[in-house]
């Protein structure tokens, strides 16, 4: 069953298109990674799905309803980011209590256990928490609410690596216990990728890729070989990324489906896997050469 469906969704912010004719759909009870560079439209998309912002045109359906102004979607979805403005005079325990009052599926045991595990103090206020602690607390809200659709926007911002790892594990364990549809945007794809079933890659408000994580991992390969041979062989094919790998040696990243690996081996090229986060960076590269162009 489709839980999220977008068709030709465009969002204008001023004159700029934050989202540009975006179409995709997400199945029930999947974890999708929302990947893209800064300003690719991730936050805009998540806020529209959460009913906080309004699409300019196109059709957005979450749980078969238009999210903007829908109480049903509001009750069954939650949007978590690091700029969550909780009232300054409610302490953390009071905020949890409010969450419990509002969300029908709220899991108090989970909330309290996580609260204690991450050493929060009931009387603390949200404004006094450090950035990492604030993210941790917000994520506890997101986990405990157990909303059918959970939207995390950079949930691990500011957390140290140990906490991030623990949070990923909590996220997965709670998902196994109580499956739901999760979208999570993050700059730490390599840390997160094992959790993901699908990946949605945005660039400039457009969809670039939407495919299972496993396929993304095998999407591209890196070839290293003598420059002339490599370039000759790759003529007419899309080179996602290339850089010098020594005198007369070239490293090139190409789509796996474009080439034949045995042939590459026969031509004496070294084949190496390309990590999914690198693939995402190469695909959304602003033209060939990336940052090196600046220094030319």
């Amino acid at each position: 069953m489709e839980v999220i469906h977008c068709e030709n969704v465009t969002k204008l912010q001023g004159k700029a298109k934050a989202l540009d004719q975006l179409s995709f759909s997400i199945k029930e009870n999947t974890i999708t990674g929302l990947i893209g560079r800064n300003g690719a439209g991730k936050t805009t998309l998540l806020k529209i799905l959460g009913g906080l912002w309004r699409e300019t045109s196109g059709e957005v359906k979450v749980l078969s309803r238009r999210p903007f102004n829908s109480l049903y979607v509001s009750e069954n979805s939650i949007y978590i980011d690091d700029a969550f403005h909780f009232p300054s005079h409610l302490n953390l325990k009071e905020i949890l209590r409010e969450g419990e009052r509002f969300y029908p599926n709220w899991n108090r045991t989970l909330a309290e256990r996580l609260f204690d595990y991450f050493e929060f103090h009931p009387k603390q206020t949200h404004a006094n928490l450090s950035k990492g602690k604030r993210s941790t607390f917000n994520m506890i809200i997101g986990l405990a609410s157990r909303c059918k659709v959970t939207l995390y926007d950079e949930p691990t911002a500011g957390m140290d690596r140990a906490v991030r790892k623990e949070m990923y594990r909590v996220l997965l364990k709670d998902y196994l216990e109580y499956p739901r549809t999760i979208i999570i945007s993050s700059h730490y794809l390599e840390e997160l990728e094992d959790l993901l079933e699908d990946v949605l890659l945005l660039d400039n408000g457009k969809k670039v890729l939407h495919l299972p994580m496993d396929e993304l991992k095998e999407f591209a390969v890196g070839l290293t070989g003598r420059s002339e041979v490599l370039l000759q062989w790759l003529r007419g094919k899309t080179i996602l990324h290339q850089q010098n790998a020594g005198p007369n040696e070239l490293y090139a990243v190409v789509k796996k489906e474009d080439i034949s690996l045995p042939e590459a081996q026969r031509l004496g090229m070294t084949i190496s896997p390309v990590s999914s986060s690198d693939v995402c960076v190469y695909i959304t590269d602003r033209g060939q050469g990336g940052i090196d162009r600046v220094f030319r």
Binding site: L172, L176, D194, E197
Partner: peptide, 11 residues
């Protein structure tokens, strides 16, 4: 397996 290795159950 998903729980053991912290991976997505689909994987």
């Amino acid at each position: 397996l998903a729980e053991m290795f912290t991976i997505n159950p689909a994987t």
